Simulated scan of single mutants.
Amino acid sequence: MSEDLEAAAELFKALSSASRLRLLTILAEAPATVSKLAEASGLSQPLVSQHLRTLRAGGLVSVHREGREARYELADLHVAHIVADAVKHALELR
């Protein structure tokens, strides 16, 4: 059980940034490149890339190369549900 809790704690660490949650919300709509994510989120491309590295390391997003471009997408629908549930819960606490 301790290993399971450690894995869950690592997941929550990856989700602990509002910017990363914003990126996941955008990706829940459709896969996107770093430049499209930067445009949609208002974050700089280097910052988006940094957050995507964290999200990839946490298994929350995957990347598919298309020529010179990399297209990011949610690893699975559970990710979108986790983010939506967390946002809903946070709004209920207000």
Score class of each variant (00 low, 15 high):
Leu43Trp: 13
Leu43Ser: 05
Leu43Ile: 11
Leu43Lys: 09
Ser44Asn: 01
Ser44Gly: 03
Ser44Met: 04
Ser44Tyr: 08
Ser44Arg: 03
Ser44Cys: 04
Ser44His: 13
Ser44Leu: 01
Gln45Pro: 05
Gln45Asp: 02
Pro46Ala: 08
Pro46Ile: 05
Pro46Gly: 05
Pro46His: 03
Leu47His: 08
Leu47Ile: 05
Leu47Gly: 02
Val48Phe: 02
Val48Arg: 02
Ser49Lys: 14
Ser49Gln: 12
Gln50Glu: 07
Gln50Asn: 06
Gln50Ser: 07
Gln50Pro: 06
Gln50His: 07
Gln50Arg: 08
His51Ile: 13
His51Lys: 05
His51Asp: 05
His51Val: 13
His51Ser: 03
Leu52Asn: 00
Leu52Asp: 00
Arg53Val: 05
Arg53Pro: 12
Arg53Ala: 06
Arg53Asp: 03
Arg53Gly: 07
Thr54Glu: 11
Thr54Val: 13
Thr54Pro: 01
Thr54Ser: 11
Thr54Tyr: 15
Leu55Glu: 11
Leu55Tyr: 15
Leu55Asn: 09
Leu55Gly: 07
Leu55Ile: 06
Arg56Met: 04
Ala57Leu: 15
Ala57Ile: 08
Ala57Phe: 13
Ala57Tyr: 12
Ala57Trp: 08
Gly58Tyr: 05
Gly58Asn: 11
Gly58Cys: 07
Gly58Thr: 09
Gly58Pro: 04
Gly58His: 13
Gly59Ala: 06
Gly59Pro: 06
Leu60Lys: 13
Leu60Gly: 08
Leu60Trp: 15
Leu60Met: 08
Leu60Asp: 07
Val61Leu: 07
Val61Ala: 12
Val61His: 13
Ser62Ile: 11
Ser62Tyr: 13
Ser62Gln: 06
Ser62Trp: 15
Ser62Ala: 14
Ser62Phe: 10
Val63His: 00
Val63Glu: 01
Val63Ile: 00
Val63Trp: 05
Val63Leu: 04
Val63Lys: 02
His64Asp: 12
Arg65Phe: 07
Arg65Asn: 09
Arg65Asp: 04
Arg65Leu: 10
Glu66Asp: 08
Gly67Val: 06
Gly67Pro: 02
Arg68Tyr: 11
Arg68Ser: 11
Arg68Glu: 03
Arg68Thr: 15
Arg68Leu: 13
Arg68Ala: 10
Arg68Lys: 11
Arg68His: 05
Glu69Pro: 11
Glu69Ile: 08
Glu69Thr: 15
Glu69Ala: 15
Glu69Val: 10
Ala70Trp: 12
Ala70Phe: 15
Ala70Ile: 10
Ala70Thr: 06
Ala70Met: 14
Ala70Gly: 11
Ala70Asp: 10
Arg71Thr: 14
Arg71Met: 14
Tyr72Gly: 00
Tyr72Thr: 00
Glu73Pro: 12
Glu73Tyr: 15
Glu73Lys: 12
Glu73His: 12
Leu74Thr: 01
Leu74Trp: 01
Leu74Arg: 01
Leu74Pro: 00
Ala75Met: 02
Ala75Pro: 00
Ala75Cys: 01
Ala75Tyr: 02
Asp76Leu: 02
Asp76Trp: 05
Asp76Pro: 00
Asp76Met: 10
Asp76Ala: 03
Asp76Val: 02
Asp76Arg: 00
